[in-house]
Amino acid sequence: MSKKFEKPNMVPVPSHSIIPDRDVGKSPILECNHLGIDFGGLRAVDDFNLTVGRTEIAGLIGPNGAGKTTVFNLLTKVYQPTRGTILLDGIDTAGKSTIQINRMGIARTFQNIRLFSNLTVEDNVKIGLHNQEVYSTFSGIFRLPKYWKKEKVAHERALELLSIFDMQDMAAMKAGSLPYGAQRRLEIVRALATNPSLLLLDEPAAGMNPSETAELMENIVKIRDMFQIAVLLIEHDMSLVMSICEGICVLNFGQVIAKGTAEEIQANPAVIEAYLGKKKEA
């Protein structure tokens, strides 16, 4: 870390988020080194270092405008980073497009829900399966055997994925007509359909009531266990973050101010200051 940005009373920042025991010895799924991006004069993210283990559930937290969503946009190449490198499963992702990144194994959800709202729930998931159950446009138009075979598999797979959140009964509904919480869950299902090795969730519990949030937490852990994938999530709901995240990374003004386990983060003065503001002398 460059000395320049270190504030006087800041605790030393561990260079890695906490990799769970089961992942120790395996290569990490994600490694960001000195990642940064500027928007004009604004350093939205600077010197961002993070390592996520193969089956880790990691949290990215921080006050509003800290740069969390921007990190996701960097990881998925919605923005090309100004500085630094991103290694996905050891492979450098420099110069890759959003589409290639998805094929390499990163899937995401969006803070402002982005569903295909005029299409059915099932079609939304099938669109996630676009690169999994492949057949040509020609077979599609002429309904060749491959069309029937792949469509059948896609249908079954879509329902199976929806059943994670017990949403298979909603398959024929329009995505846009779903209640808010269900829309968020559908985004997760759609992301899972792309068969990722790293799932990025941008405020998955936003707008959910406490019981929905509790259920979501269970399901995130279930998804990790079922698919053996890593999850990196942004969340303002601290109960969710503290209870399911094995490693937590705290951002403030585009910089990492702390990394560690839930206990370490909760006890960290820099984090408390970032969230509550510095105690006024007066």
Binding site: I99, N102, R114, D123, A193
Partner: peptide, 16 residues
Amino acid sequence: MAIRDNRIAAESVGIN
């Protein structure tokens, strides 16, 4: 239709 409804989401699921 995915591109029509939401281009950014379509890209995020790997649609060319």
